[in-house]
Write a protein that binds this DNA or RNA. Structure first.
Length: 696
RNA sequence: GCGCCCGUAGCUCAGUUGGAUAGAGCAACGGAUUUCUAAUCCGUAGGUCGGGGGUUCGAAUCCCUCCGGGCGUGCCA
């Protein structure tokens, strides 16, 4: 299971975590808040502008025009124009009118002549909208000189806390941390770019049983020399060792039980098969279930045997296992002592945590992942007793079977905030976190970028938080699916171990290097990149491939980790976008064009070819794509957009000469399009946490 | 047992919350190049949106049911 949640190293004052008083780049925008959007002159999002116009026309037809203006959207097929309004049918029904007549009526009282060509009513009452080239060129000209590429910062920014990555710092990060980290970071960047006040919070695991294992290993099995030269590696080895021994003893106990159960299931199945009468659907179903249970137990047994075999095949491991039959209990004891605040364990913990964090930071640096705060379990630990007491005082939590639980109507499982043994759970910690995020950070919205398998936990958590008095805040479980191997099972090594994140990155970069080498070697005029440059490109391409593959899927789907596909040089991959960017960069390099000068040259966009219009329109839709990402926390909307943008550019570049264009005004216009394309692609990729190269 | 999720082209996946003739990529096939970077572009073919029923102007999308698969499920996080 993916690690998640565990607390900040040392207790820090709340002051450190207050919202920054200044958000440079956003403040100016917020002053425009009260003015109608069109009057600010900043609004370039065509869709928002159209909706706003339609809202006026609908104001005396519908009490609340919002749901209807939401039905103004980009067309799916260019033959219907650029946008379409689909509200006439439902609105006509509500008003008891004919939809086509209503559409015509609205078209009649709407003057959009500055924006688009005359509106057309089609089919049962669709209103088709096609932007005027004049308006398109005007907007594009504005974007060219706009640092924000025509994307308006939100006029009513929210305070958003995004909880992502959240590894257990006691062990190396693995493939299971990839999605939360990559997805969370992309959402973080997009939300920030759109003007929200965002706090990226790494809710690390630094207070749980894993630390007990490290402490036990350190005290009993430490290789002092190894620890002194590479402390984190040695601590990770200790964790693995203790965990392995403890698993071994568990497996020894579990194996006979599983075998008994297997035998029993086999007998039951045989009996059921013998007595089954033909065409009995219920019996068929039961049999199926039994076979599936049987398989499950067989797999469990195989896994247990493997765990046992691993230890017993190594004399040294076996000796350790025999010497410490109670190792799990002993490790738990170390955890308990840490929680109780004994001098030695506290001192060791204070020594280890910063070292572990520094190691993890190495991966974050490489992946360019940013957080504003790192508060995990240890940070919230002192608040937990009070959380439980408060829940009890308010009558929300009660004792059941020795544990303190919150029962949410409609949910069979209780939300356990204190175990029978008195220990708190991550439920308690999550509640303390919500209270902190609301009371101290003043969060309006709290996002949890966590594996979908924990959705039940979050349902209970949010329900409990609502009852507790935080119902006015938005809490969203931004859930995501599992990364699978090619066998369609959760991605593991052949021997069944989880895959370390570092080695995953290295493998992708190494593969990218081969591609970069092959491509550069085959250039008509010989290689262009020295070894250092190739290494940089390979790092950019390799890491970009991993991130993009993760982000381009609908987050809720599982997906198969396939290095060949994610690093393919054709198709919907980061490489394709990075290449599109490098091509544009090459145009400026080759033409000796200073892009800054170009932008301020006063040159205007001229539409002389369909692919120029298509590209300009596509570039103006950047803002729509970003809004789409945040509407449902789906970065794949941005990957789709970027792929379409790169594709539209390639088509344009195929059909339109740029540097070789003899007409200077047209050449300038096309250079402006190239410049804008490069900036949109680079910015879009950057918002996904993906880098670009000037040359590749 | 109960709960949640999924099933879309040969493969991998989108599908803007109910809109027009369901879209991409890969693979396949056909075409474009004395390359402003071909890591490219254009085109062709490929579908009972798991099956059935229902709701309505209109369904891949909402409801019911069946089939197939995944995940979770009282003291791990």
């Amino acid at each position: 299971m993916v690690g998640r949640r565990f607390a900040g190293p040392t207790l820090r004052s709340a002051d450190e975590y207050r919202w920054p008083s200044s958000f440079s780049g956003f403040r100016k925008r917020t002053t425009a808040r009260q003015r109608p959007l069109e009057e600010t002159g900043l609004l370039m999002n065509a869709l928002a502008q159209l909706r706003s116009r339609f809202a006026k026309a609908l104001s005396d037809l519908a009490a609340d025009p919002a749901p209807f203006t939401a039905m103004v959207r980009p067309t799916q097929d260019a033959k219907f124009g650029d946008f379409q309004a689909n509200f006439a049918m439902p609105l006509a029904k509500q008003l008891g009118k004919n939809p086509r007549d209503l559409a015509a009526e609205i078209v009649g009282k709407l003057d959009l002549s500055d924006l688009c060509q005359p509106l057309e009513v089609a089919g049962p009452g669709f209103i088709n909208i096609r932007l005027k080239d004049d308006w398109l060129t005007e907007q594009t000209n504005r974007s060219v000189t706009d640092a924000r590429l025509g994307v308006e910062a939100n006029t009513t920014p929210k305070r958003i806390v995004i909880d992502y990555s959240a590894p257990n710092v006691a062990k190396p990060m693995h493939v299971g941390h990839l999605r939360s980290t990559v997805l969370g970071n992309a959402l973080y960047r997009v939300a920030k770019f759109l003007g929200h006040h965002v706090q990226g919070d790494n809710h690390i695991g630094d207070w749980g049983t894993q630390f007990g294992m490290i402490l036990f290993g350190y005290k009993n099995f430490l290789d002092r020399a190894a620890f002194e030269s590479a402390p984190v590696t040695e601590l990770a080895r200790q964790y693995r060792l203790v965990s392995q021994l403890s698993t071994y003893h568990d497996a020894k106990v579990e194996l006979p039980k599983a075998e008994t159960r297997l035998a029993q299931l086999e007998i039951e199945l045989a009996a059921a098969e013998a007595s089954k009468s033909a065409n009995d659907k219920n019996a068929e179903k039961t049999l199926k279930k039994q076979r599936s249970d049987l398989n499950e137990v067989r797999e469990q047994i195989a896994s247990l045997k493997k765990q046992i075999e691993t230890v017993e095949s190594s004399p040294s491991l076996k000796a350790l296992a025999d010497a410490y039959p109670q190792i799990a209990e002993l490790a738990r004891l170390e955890t308990a002592k840490l929680h109780a605040g004994t001098e030695e364990n506290t001192r060791l913990w204070n020594q280890f945590v910063p070292q572990c964090l520094a190691a993890i930071q190495g991966i974050y640096d490489r992946l360019d992942i940013r957080f504003d705060m790192t508060c995990g379990e240890s940070f919230y630990n002192p608040m937990l007793a009070d959380v439980v007491a408060d829940l009890q005082a308010k009558g929300l939590a009660s004792e059941s079977d020795g544990a303190i639980c919150v029962f949410i109507p409609g949910n069979a499982a209780p939300f356990i905030v204190r175990k029978r043994d008195g220990a708190f759970t991550y439920a308690t910690s999550d509640l303390a976190t919500i209270r902190y995020r609301v009371n101290v950070l003043h969060a309006d919205t709290m996002l949890y970028v966590v594996d979908t398998r924990q959705s039940e936990h979050f349902r209970l958590l949010f329900e409990t938080a609502k009852l507790w008095g935080y119902g006015d805040r938005e809490m969203v479980h931004v859930n995501f699916g599992t990364i699978l191997g090619k066998d369609n099972k959760p991605y593991k090594t052949r021997s069944g171990d989880t895959i370390g994140l570092e080695s995953l990155l290295d493998a992708a970069v190494a593969k990218a290097r081969q591609i970069v080498d092959a491509n550069d070697d085959s250039k008509p005029e010989g290689r262009e990149l020295n070894d250092d440059a190739r290494a940089t490109v390979a790092e950019t391409v390799g890491l970009g491939a991993i991130k993009y593959a993760d982000l381009r899927h609908n987050r809720e789907s599982d997906y198969v980790y396939d290095e060949d596909k994610m690093l393919a040089t054709t198709g919907d991959t980061a490489t394709y976008m990075q290449y599109a960017y490098a091509r544009v960069a090459g145009i400026f390099r080759k033409g000796g064009v200073n892009r800054e000068t170009l932008r301020n040259s006063g040159g205007r966009l001229l539409i002389t070819h369909p692919s120029e219009r298509a590209l300009a329109l596509q570039l103006l839709r950047f803002s729509e794509a970003l809004d789409g990402v945040l509407a449902e926390y789906r970065p794949n909307i941005l990957t789709d957009y970027l792929f379409a943008t790169a594709n539209t550019f390639s088509t344009f570049y195929q059909g339109c000469t740029v540097l070789k264009e003899p007409d200077e005004a047209i050449r300038t216009s096309r250079l402006l399009l190239c410049d804008l394309t490069a900036r949109v692609i680079a910015t879009g990729l950057d918002l996904l946490g993906i880098k670009t190269c000037e040359q590749m």
